[in-house]
Nucleic acid binder design. Sequence first.
DNA 1: TGTACATCAGTGAACGCGCGTTCACTGATGTAC
DNA 2: TGTACATCAGTGAACGCGCGTTCACTGATGTAC
Lengths: 207, 207
Amino acid sequence: MWMTRSFTRKRNRRGQGPRLRAEIVDAATALIAHNGPDGLTLRAVAREAGITAPSIYPHFSGLDAVLEAVVDNMFAMLADYIRQSAGPAADPVSRLRAACHAYVGFGQKYPNEYAIMFTHKSELIADSTEPTVANMPGAEAFDLLLEPLRDCVASGASRSTNAQGDATALWVALHGYISLNTSLPRFPWPAGDTVIDILITHVAQLN
Amino acid sequence: MWMTRSFTRKRNRRGQGPRLRAEIVDAATALIAHNGPDGLTLRAVAREAGITAPSIYPHFSGLDAVLEAVVDNMFAMLADYIRQSAGPAADPVSRLRAACHAYVGFGQKYPNEYAIMFTHKSELIADSTEPTVANMPGAEAFDLLLEPLRDCVASGASRSTNAQGDATALWVALHGYISLNTSLPRFPWPAGDTVIDILITHVAQLN
DNA sequence: TGTACATCAGTGAACGCGCGTTCACTGATGTAC
DNA sequence: TGTACATCAGTGAACGCGCGTTCACTGATGTAC
């Protein structure tokens, strides 16, 4: 069982109040990572952060707002994670494969956090914003799949004639792998990365 | 807002007590369908079923057991749903395509119910049972993808050399589509069934 | 430089609520004689 | 056929608990003069 941190927090100095905001987000993330999304309450977050429950209100309107910040944070981490893994590779196919494996690797390294990124009520995305790729929460990560795929097409390594559609399909497939593999670990999965490689090769139509 | 049923329930007759078990499962399913998995409590299920909370205990050890029954029920429904849609088609490719579309259709028709089928703690599956395809909760549904794919291979319609692996990849992909499409409805999805068709054609390696 | 004061970063007690679970019970229904 | 009884299918009150949210407060820290 996960235990609350036991050391006593030191109050922030004048003007440093907003630092607590980040600590609250970290505390919520840690709780999700260890207990899943279920036990997540305002009071639990406060306990984990080493503060009292009312102290959250100056920084967030409630638990939903905290969760939204956690999700935003995780999406930014995901994009960084993919960039770090896929950046070095020179040829487009290696870059695409690396990006896909990094995407799945992130989901498997942070399964509970990954799950809430997509479980989270999407109504929180402002209704006024146009539904384009650019202002989606996962837009950065999506682009990190789409661009290498486009490069594969340009270099003749992929037979795709619809990069946007195929990148979407690829995203869907990788997401499905993370989700199913996490929730059904007892399924007789083919060894190692077999399924991931099948998906990349065929959905991205690599030669 | 979803309202509780207002008519008053009639007590079951002697010997008909077990009927309440099914009513409890139905009530829990209805709550999940309308409110998502979050507001689901023992007392809410009892209210929805028109009984008092303690009346659940003779039939289930607690909320987890109710949820398990709901999930089992939904997996059985899913298999029926696929069979009904995919049964008539004569040639293997049509059967495979129909099965895949039915799978996705089920997930989109019952998004909240579909989500809990895989969100549900998989530890409830007896640890002693061997992890084979046969005793998975979704085994029936998986077979309804695997068999048509094998037929496609046999008839020369699919280039797959690893039906089991490719069926797994296909399942993963369809699952991913349901999941992402449900949680990100504002993403600029390609029109209609484009993504599904891309996934079927390429993952099943149809000619 | 010293001091009075305003402000900032939280605390701690309290509230009403719905929850899971227990317990003794009730009243209709079937059964034995 | 009548009646006493056992059992079945639930009820209703009660408990302790953790929750979200409010409110008045405190004490350290920076600022004005």
